[in-house]
Amino acid sequence: MDLTIKNNEAKFLVRLADTSLILGQRLAEMCSNGPFLEEDIALSNISLDLFGRAEEMYKIICDIEGNNFTPDDLVFRRNEREYFNIKLVEQPNEDFAWVIVRQFLHDIYVQEVYTQLLNSENSEVVGLAQKVLKEVRYSYIHSKDWMERLGLGTEESNARVQSAVDHQLKYIEEIFAFDELDKTYLADSDQLRSVWENDVNATLAACNLERKEIMPLTMRDFRDGFHSEHIGHLLSIMQYLPRAYPDAKW
C-alpha cells in the first residue's frame, strides 16, 4: 500500500496530525502511571483529546489524497521515516517533570498554530481549529499550573523540572526552521516563534527556572522524516497489534 502523501496542504497537515498522535501515545503510556489518581486521569483525558484531534486531521488528509487510504492505515502502517512529528513530542516520560515540560512547550506552540489556522482557506481545517483551541486552552492551563508548582515547589522538584527543560529545549530549534509549506499554510510563521519565545521566557523566569544556552546541534529536520532514537520503540508498541494481526477488527 502506497502511503505517500503528495498534496502540499496534506503534507503540511500531516506534521500536525503526527505531532498530535505521538504525544497522545506518550501520554497514554502515563495511564495508570500518574503520580496520583486525579492527575492520572487528567493526563489520560489530554491524551484522548490528542488522539481525537489527530484522527480528525487524518480524515481531512485522506480526503485531500482521494481516500486511497484511511486514518488507521496512516497510523498503523507507516514506518519511522514516514512520520513527520516534531521531535519534542516523542521524548520519553522520564519522570513527571518531563511529562509536564514537554506538554507545556507543546501547548504554547499548538495554541498559536491553531489560532493561525482559523484563517485557513480550508473550511474543515477552520472547524477543527476552533474545536482544538478549546481543548488546548485547558491543557495549557493544566501544564502551566504544574510548571509553577514544580518550579516553585521544593529543591528536588525545581531540579527535576530544570533538567527536563534543559533536555527538551534541544528539540525546539527545528520547529522554527520553517520551510515553504509552513510559510504557505501558517498565517504568520514569524509570529509563531515570537509568541512561543515570549511565553516560554516569561514562564521560566516566573517559575524560578533558567533558560540555558543550547550548544549548536546537528539534527536533521523532522519535515524530512528524521527523528530522535525514541520513535522506533514508541511505534513498535503502538503498531504491534495491527502489524501482527493485519485482519484484526476493532
Partner: peptide, 20 residues
C-alpha cells in the same frame, strides 16, 4: 469527591474527574 492540595488543583481535578 476528589483529592487536591489547594483550591486551584481541586477545581481542575474535579473537572477532569466529573465533567468530561
Amino acid at each position: 469527591s476528589c483529592h487536591a492540595y489547594d483550591k486551584k488543583m481541586a477545581i481542575q481535578n474535579a473537572r477532569d474527574l466529573y465533567t468530561r
